[in-house]
């Protein structure tokens, strides 16, 4: 499930988890489950953060007038 979360949602959920754990009054099983989930989310966030490839695309018309995303080259020479 965590795979489909956006960065935004992941970090929000991570925050919730941390707050719940910090609240302290929690079953150990639950704490571990949360910890596990938190680690997974942190991993996801860190991976997205580490993802340095910047992709710039532009929506163009294809041969049959369909929409096509193409890599944008336009401003490279600047």
């Amino acid at each position: 499930m965590a795979q489909t979360l956006s960065f935004e949602d992941s970090i929000k959920r991570l925050e919730e988890i941390v707050k719940e754990l910090e609240n302290g009054d929690i079953e150990i099983e639950k704490a571990l489950t949360l910890f596990e989930e938190g680690m997974r989310l942190a991993k996801l966030c860190a991976q997205k953060l580490a993802h340095v490839e910047r992709r710039i695309e532009i929506l163009k018309k294809g041969e049959k007038d369909e929409d096509v995303l193409e890599l944008f080259q336009g401003l490279d020479e600047e």
Partner: peptide, 10 residues
Amino acid sequence: YRGVHIIIYP
């Protein structure tokens, strides 16, 4: 931040 994906709608 280079990791942002940009889509241009011209």
